[in-house]
Simulated assay, not measured.
Amino acid sequence: MLACRREGLRRRYLSLGIGELVAAVVFLTLALTMAIPRLDDRQDRLALWSALVPLLVVLVQAGVYWLLARSWVENHPMPVFLRGTYRVCRIVDVALLAAGLVGIIVWLPAGIGAALAVVAVWLFGVIEFVNYFVVRLSYPVRHWLSTVRQLRTPRLVRDMNTVA
Rank of each mutant, 00 (worst) to 15 (best):
A99C: 14
L52C: 02
F27L: 10
T33Q: 07
L28F: 11
L28R: 04
T85H: 14
T29A: 13
L28Y: 09
T29I: 04
L39K: 00
W122N: 02
R42H: 04
V53D: 08
L116Y: 06
L32Y: 00
V58Q: 13
A99R: 07
L59M: 01
L56I: 09
R90Y: 02
E74S: 12
A117S: 13
L39H: 02
T29V: 10
W107P: 10
W49P: 11
I91L: 14
D93P: 03
A110D: 14
C89R: 03
V126T: 06
L59R: 13
F124D: 03
L56E: 00
L55E: 07
E74K: 06
G125D: 11
V121D: 06
V57R: 03
W72F: 12
W72Y: 11
D93E: 15
F129R: 00
A98V: 07
R42N: 06
M34Y: 00
D44V: 07
Q43S: 13
D41E: 11
D41T: 08
V130G: 02
G100Q: 13
A115I: 04
L67D: 06
S71F: 15
F129T: 04
G111C: 03
T85K: 12
E128P: 08
I112K: 12
Y65R: 06
F27P: 03
V57Y: 12
Y65A: 01
L123I: 13
I112W: 14
D40W: 05
I127M: 08
L56M: 09
V130W: 10
R70H: 06
L68Y: 14
L39I: 02
P37Q: 00
D40S: 11
A117G: 15
W107Q: 10
D41A: 11
W122M: 07
